[in-house]
């Protein structure tokens, strides 16, 4: 995939949290001479937050049965860490769990043995899927922001039309002019206008 080629230049930091030392070492050799750089941490250690802070990993790989999953879950809620793609080791039989969790859009799973080609493609897919998910989320919040901003401008417009007997076009133009003159965004001008007019009314 062409988008993967583009990001393949810079190495990606992986933080692996796993108590299974054999699996961890298999994982490490699977990533030998790849674009991924691995740091390994035994789970249930207390320093996970510090490690995440220090390493700023691009991907976190964790055993689904690790107690540290609750720390990962808290990263987005209690602190200001940027969301990361999380990849989980999972037993073969847990397919229901996998199907369910993959819908959350941020996870991929390593099921069964850890072989070089498989692990790399799973990680590639996790990064791609995560980026896609993040841009969707961004798009969504951008759309929401635009809608909110339009709603504000509309409200200010109708207030001007009502109070100043302006036409819709005049009202719009005067908000746009104020925005240009003061170097503000139209929604900020609209917000000020709405506050001002309703304060004067009281």
């Amino acid at each position: 995939m062409s988008e993967n080629v583009a990001v393949a230049e810079k190495p990606l930091e992986i933080l692996l949290i796993d108590d299974d030392l054999d699996r961890a070492s298999a994982f490490r050799s699977a990533l030998d001479r790849s674009r991924y750089r691995l740091s390994h941490l035994v789970s249930s250690r207390t320093s996970l937050l510090k490690e995440v802070d220090k390493l700023k990993p691009d991907i976190i790989v964790i055993d689904i049965e690790s107690p540290d999953r609750d720390i990962l879950e808290s990263l987005s809620t209690l602190s200001n860490f940027n969301p990361k793609p999380v990849v989980m080791f999972c037993e073969q039989e847990d397919t229901g769990l996998i199907n369910q969790s993959v819908q959350s859009g941020v996870s991929a799973y390593v099921v069964g043995e850890v072989s070089s080609a498989r692990v790399r493609s799973i990680l590639d897919a996790a990064v791609a899927r995560f980026n896609q998910y993040q841009s969707l989320k961004q798009e969504l919040s951008e759309t929401k922001r635009k809608l909110d901003s339009r709603r504000l401008v509309d409200k200010a417009k109708s207030l001007l039309m009502q109070k100043k007997a302006m036409s819709e076009e005049q009202a719009f133009n005067s908000i746009r002019k104020m925005a240009m003159d003061t170097g503000q965004r139209m929604e900020d001008v609209a917000r000020t206008l709405i506050t001002l007019i309703s304060t004067l009314d009281n």
């Binding site: 049965e65 107690p67 879950e73 769990l97 969790s101």
Partner: peptide, 9 residues
């Protein structure tokens, strides 16, 4: 071992 995995299961 974790609340998150218990919930997912």
């Amino acid at each position: 071992n974790s609340w998150a995995t218990l919930r997912d299961k």
